[in-house]
Structures are given as structure tokens and as C-alpha cells.
């Protein structure tokens, strides 16, 4: 096991990048990067074939550590850059890392329309319910009533469900995992990369520093353990009532449908135009 970790670290992390990373001790981002690397490794793609794109925020810093073609874009715009890369080089595997605020607030419009087009991109949305890098302001996924640095009296807005948003907009593969369920996450990311179309993997993560501290606990272990306790598999959730699913985290593949991917449709009009 440890030999395997060493092999992956040597193969996929950038040795000329000055570590340590920017993430706080106990942050879930490292687990997600690990899962992503394991998924790529298991699928057997070369590092040259993978493009890792991100927006802004703690999640945005992920690409710099990984030895792929890496692109750290502007806040909320990662999917637009990724669209350009993918359409020019359809053979590349383009994976986009975003945070909850990045993907659904400032980048919400791009998220909706990239899903609607069903462009063959894999998006991993790290949902830690907060804007971490800027100091703990509430985001579109911050639960009602929670404390954040900009909701000192408790948060008054309803939340977005990233999964429902993605599904309604047209994503063809949709999954949810947590940083506790690391092995499951490997598999979900693997399936998302293999899907031909727009894939979304929502990963519930912990920001104990900015979210946990202001709410239930500043202990990352406690936060991650609560993911274990609150997680329900998709299969089990089907047998449960909506009331009993309240406050639960449904994990697994939520939706997986075959539908035309943008690039295939575009190739068809190219043929039409040439004839």
C-alpha cells in the first residue's frame, strides 16, 4: 500500500514545484487529488493526455501540484477554458476542478450551459459549503441557518442542490462522493472520466477552518466522521422516505444516461458543411 502511494506520488506530483501545498492541515482537497490520480492511473492514460483545469479558490490550487497539462483559470470560468481546450483537442481528457462557489455562484451560468451542451468534460465539484480561501463567506451551498463570516446572524438563503442543478441542466453522468469514502471516490471519478459527455462528481469535503469552526466543530476528523455517519448509498436511499433522507448525504452514481455529446454533433455538421 505505502509502496503504491510512493509510486503514485513520484509519478504524478510535480517535484520541481515547491511543496508544501497551500491547503490547511486536515483539508479534504488532498484526498480528492489522491482519488483523481488513482483514477487516472487505473485508466492508464498518459500524463500528456490529461488536462487539469481549475477556477479560483482553494480547489483552484490543485492543478499546480499535478504533473499534467494544467490550467488555473479565472474565478468561475474554468469550464469555458476547458471547452476551448476540449473542442480543439478532443482526444485529451479534460478534467475540471471547481469549488461550490466557483461552480454554482460566479460560474453558475457556465455550469448550466456546459451541462446543457453535454460537452465531454469531467467536472469535480468540491463542496465544502463555504468560500474558504477568502475567509469563510457563505456560498450557494451553505446550509440555511449556518454561520459564516458574512452571515453572523445565521444564513437566511436556501441552498442549491448541485446534483439537481446539473441533472436539470443536462449533465449525462452525475455522482456524489465524500472525502471519507475515498475508495468510492476513485471509482466515481473513473466512471466520470469514461463517460462520453458532461460528467459531474460532487465531492462533499470539510472546511473545518472556516465552516466547521463557526458551526459544529473545528475538528477535521469529527467532520469527516460525520460524513461516514450521514452517508447513504443510492441503492439504500431509494428505499427511504424523503423525510428520513433529510440531512443525509446520498453517495454513489446518481444519474448515468446516454445522450449525444456536443463534439459528436459538431462533427456531424462538419460533414454536412463539406458535402
Amino acid at each position: 500500500m505505502s509502496q503504491e502511494v510512493t509510486r503514485l506520488v513520484h509519478k504524478y506530483l510535480r517535484h520541481d514545484k515547491k511543496f508544501p501545498h497551500v491547503w490547511c492541515p486536515g483539508c479534504g482537497n488532498g484526498i480528492i487529488l489522491g482519488a483523481l490520480i488513482r483514477a487516472v492511473d487505473r485508466l492508464g492514460f498518459t500524463k500528456d493526455e490529461v488536462v487539469l483545469v481549475s477556477g479560483i479558490g482553494c480547489s483552484g490550487r490543485m492543478p499546480v501540484y499535478a504533473d499534467f497539462n494544467t490550467l488555473h483559470t479565472t474565478h468561475g470560468r474554468a469550464l469555458t477554458f476547458a471547452t476551448g481546450v476540449k473542442l480543439v483537442k478532443p482526444d485529451l481528457k479534460v478534467i475540471v476542478i471547481m469549488g461550490d462557489g466557483d461552480a454554482t455562484a460566479i460560474g453558475g451560468n457556465h455550469f448550466i450551459h456546459t451541462a446543457r451542451r453535454n460537452i465531454d468534460l469531467t467536472s469535480i465539484i468540491i463542496n465544502n459549503y463555504i468560500y474558504g480561501m477568502t475567509g469563510g463567506q457563505f456560498s450557494p451551498t451553505t446550509p440555511y441557518g449556518s454561520m459564516a463570516s458574512t452571515s453572523p446572524y445565521g444564513h437566511i438563503e436556501p441552498t442549491f442542490s448541485i446534483a439537481q442543478l446539473a441533472e436539470t441542466a443536462g449533465a449525462s453522468f452525475l455522482a456524489r462522493g465524500t472525502v471519507y469514502h475515498a475508495r468510492l471516490l476513485d471509482k466515481l471519478i473513473e466512471s466520470a472520466i469514461l463517460n462520453c459527455g458532461f460528467s459531474v462528481v460532487e465531492v462533499i469535503s470539510n472546511c473545518h477552518v472556516h465552516f466547521g469552526r463557526r458551526n459544529e466543530t473545528s475538528n477535521p476528523v469529527t467532520m469527516i466522521k460525520s460524513m461516514k455517519e450521514n452517508a447513504v448509498t443510492v441503492e439504500k436511499a431509494k428505499k427511504m422516505t424523503p423525510e428520513s433522507l433529510k440531512d443525509k448525504i446520498v453517495v454513489g452514481v446518481l444519474n448515468d444516461i446516454q445522450k449525444p455529446a456536443y463534439i459528436n454533433e459538431y462533427q456531424k455538421i462538419c460533414e454536412k458543411a463539406k458535402n
Binding site: 479565472t74 469550464l79 469555458t80 477554458f81 476551448g84 473542442l87 457556465h110 448550466i112 450551459h113
Partner: peptide, 30 residues
């Protein structure tokens, strides 16, 4: 489409600008 190039109508001008930068990094004049 006649020359095998790409045309895409994006959701706004922010996205258009992002897409042409991504395309350029992937080697296309955009």
C-alpha cells in the same frame, strides 16, 4: 465547419473569451 475548424456560440462574452484562450492553449489560432 467547412474547414474543420470550430465555431461555438457561448452563453455570454465572458465564456467566449475563456473558450478562445483555452483553444489557443490547445494550439488553435482563435
Amino acid at each position: 465547419p467547412e474547414i474543420g475548424g470550430t465555431f461555438i456560440q457561448m452563453e455570454d462574452e465572458i465564456a467566449s473569451m475563456g473558450a478562445i484562450i483555452g483553444a489557443s492553449l490547445a494550439g488553435a489560432k482563435s
